[in-house]
Amino acid sequence: MTVVLTPELRASRIARVNPVAKLVAALLVSLTLVLTIDWVSAGVALALQAVLLPFAGVSVRQFFLRTTPVWIAAVAAAIATALYGEDSGAVLWGWGPVTVTDGSVTLAVAVALRVLAIGVPGVILFATSDPTELADGLAQLLRLPARFVLGALAAVRLVGLFIDDWRALAMAHRARGVGDGGGPLGALRRLGSQSFALLVLSVRRASKLATAMEAKGFGGAGRRTWARPSHFGRAEILMVAIGAGIAACSTLAAVAAGSWNLVVS
């Protein structure tokens, strides 16, 4: 649970920025990049992001550990696109209905770069943000309803407890004589029964937590105050500007190179 909600944030320029600004910046880049599929825009965005990466204060090991899923997704998407993507140009390799062509390879590169350019900054910005601070920002700066924001924050905490509960349930099943055996079918049945037990446990815990929150006046009629101020100052404006700048540069570069192709037209 500590992993999820109270991450060890290393002091860095990006870690100090309000998470809301990071969210807005990441959204600006992502929304721009999903408009078009071409390798120029994604490549430019990725190059600019790489320049900013040192300011995140994430170690090399941490960087690859956290972004592993993004790399896997990028490679998987690239392979699938190369094999099954829309074909054009010279055929490089073929096997039955599967053909790899100049066109599908170009598309594959564009897709892989896009996954990276959207995924990597998203993961890094989230890794350098504190969920409590994000909730504060969403409620105070973006005026999202407190009920929704704090409810979601409490829910994230419960998700963190899943891991411990799952292990406890596995031990309980073993202690009851139903912890192994039965081959693959038995394993499947056990997975089902244990998942259901986890669900029951979580619902009970959530309802207790809801009572505790209500007892502390949550959801009352009066106006709520916020103990932690959420600032949107120069650093935050700069962060959003950087996001907008990356989005603009990649769009202009793609248009100039003539590769910009709007997906929705």
């Binding site: 109270t6 937590l209 505790a212 929150m213 502390k216 709520r224 105050t225 103990a227």
Partner: peptide, 24 residues
């Protein structure tokens, strides 16, 4: 176990005060 709402000690104690509108 099911009474802590926030992730950190200080924030958790402050939670009730926030809800009833105590000034920051």
């Amino acid at each position: 176990d099911s009474q802590a709402v926030m992730a950190r000690v200080g924030d958790d104690v402050a939670f009730g005060c926030e809800n009833v509108g105590v000034p920051r």
